[in-house]
Amino acid sequence: MSTVVLISTRLEKALSNFLAFLMAAMVIDVLWQVISRFALADPSSYTEELARFLLMWVGLLGAAYAYRKHSHLSLDLVIKSVSPAAQIRLNRFIQCVTFTFALCVMVFGGYKLMALTLSLKQNSAALGIPMGWVYACIPISGLFICWFAFDNFIHAGSHSENNNNSKV
């Protein structure tokens, strides 16, 4: 197994563990919101905000995981109709586009946003945690997507027909 593949596998494993944790935390959080309000009559002040923040993390880190799993939706009409060599070139181009987007918007833009909200000391309304740490999910997810796009790029030739699970 090459180093790239090894790293990708480890990253995927870490992402899936974290995703399971975030999902479970979200379920418990919203359940607690209902219980604290209805059964204990002492409404929790932070569950609503925490749930929204967890959702942002699930959405973005999950997006990286789904990218690794080739499960984002795309139209495959053109790519299915060209020669295998052209398929590889097209696939490499798509990986470049994705890599550039993830790098510019998610890693760089997300980092800028995170740094800005941290340095200007914006704190969340209910939990009082720095918004910068909430936004950290954007650059982190961007880094994962960059790596997976890089992996897909160098392995574009080897498993191009392996992508049939992308539902297209």
Partner: peptide, 10 residues
Amino acid sequence: GLKIRVQQSQ
């Protein structure tokens, strides 16, 4: 004992 909706802020 009345549950009064507030904005998310301490």
